[in-house]
């Protein structure tokens, strides 16, 4: 039985963790031993064990964001040994298991770093900039009511699939964290693409692209230089093809005259 009988092979690790008491407090790396760690633990369960021991020893546990622990809520996310969400492809920190590490390893754990994601405490950052990018136009205006029958609008399967690929974004911020420019292009582009390939998304397509791109800039994210780090870090494997779509839509939108008031943009 692979993977289920490995409790015996427990590991001893050394953690180097960023600790910072509050947003404006100074921070630094603090070392902690993490002994008797089972390879079947998730990365966050390993942190739970360390925290339990810290608490029992009268120290403050390491603060980190987490919630669903099944890779879909997007709450968790830390830099693990210099990679967003750690070494496994298409895997959030909560789904990363300790079998990816070996006995004696040293693990560096840091918060996402971006001007637009200020540290709140320890490994927790404020990602509300993402919400504001969505507010700028990441939606289809369809107030609750009685729209037409759902099947009145057939959508080609490839379009629906492409929309879904991009809608799979969990808003964790790994793309920003991994980008050498701390750019939010992949996040923004994924939403633009999700809505741009659906017929329902057409009426607001131009205003959406302009407004979201400009909000992304105003929030203090960097620009895209196509390093490709974001799509590797993305736990949902969203392709940087989305960024091409965003640029195309933005160029088209800039060439189109926008009626006054139609555009709730930031400028």
């Amino acid at each position: 039985m692979s993977g289920t009988s490995s409790a015996a092979k427990s590991m001893n690790l050394t953690l180097h963790v960023w600790r910072q008491a509050a947003a404006h407090a100074p921070g630094g790396i603090v070392d902690y031993p993490a002994n008797d760690i089972s390879p079947d633990m998730s990365f966050l369960e390993m942190l739970d064990v360390v925290n339990e021991r810290l608490t029992e020893g009268g120290q403050e546990p390491i603060a980190f964001d987490h919630d669903c622990r099944e890779g879909i809520c997007g709450s968790c996310g830390v830099m693990i040994n210099g990679a967003a969400h750690g070494p496994m492809k298409a895997t959030t920190a909560c789904q990363l298991h300790m079998r990816s590490f070996s006995d004696g390893d040293e693990i560096w754990i840091e918060p996402w770093r971006a001007k637009a994601f200020p540290v709140v405490k320890d490994l927790i950052v404020n990602r509300s900039a993402f919400d504001r990018i969505i507010q700028a136009g990441g939606y289809i205006s369809a107030p609750t009511g009685t729209p037409q029958d759902a099947n009145a609008l057939p959508i080609r399967k490839p379009d629906a699939d492409l929309a879904m690929d991009n809608a799979a974004c969990i808003g964790c911020g790994a793309c920003v964290a991994a980008c050498p420019n701390a750019s939010a292009s992949l996040f923004t582009a994924a939403k633009i693409t999700h809505l741009a390939v659906l017929p329902q998304g057409q009426p607001e397509r131009s205003t959406r692209a302009r407004s979201m791109v400009e909000t992304m800039d105003l929030e203090g994210f960097g620009g895209c230089t196509l390093f490709g780090e974001c799509q590797v870090a993305c736990p949902k494997e969203i392709s940087i093809d989305a960024i091409m779509q965003m640029n195309r839509d933005y160029i088209m939108a800039s060439a189109t005259k926008v009626e006054l008031g139609e555009w709730a943009g930031s400028a």
Partner: peptide, 26 residues
């Protein structure tokens, strides 16, 4: 753009391992 991108990450990582960025891009 370089200035904007630099400003977007005022605090550097203690450890960061680029995963795919090519020598040319960096």
């Amino acid at each position: 753009l370089t200035l904007i991108n630099r400003a977007a990450r005022p605090t550097a990582y203690v450890r960061r391992d680029p995963q795919v960025a090519t020598f040319a891009s960096r």
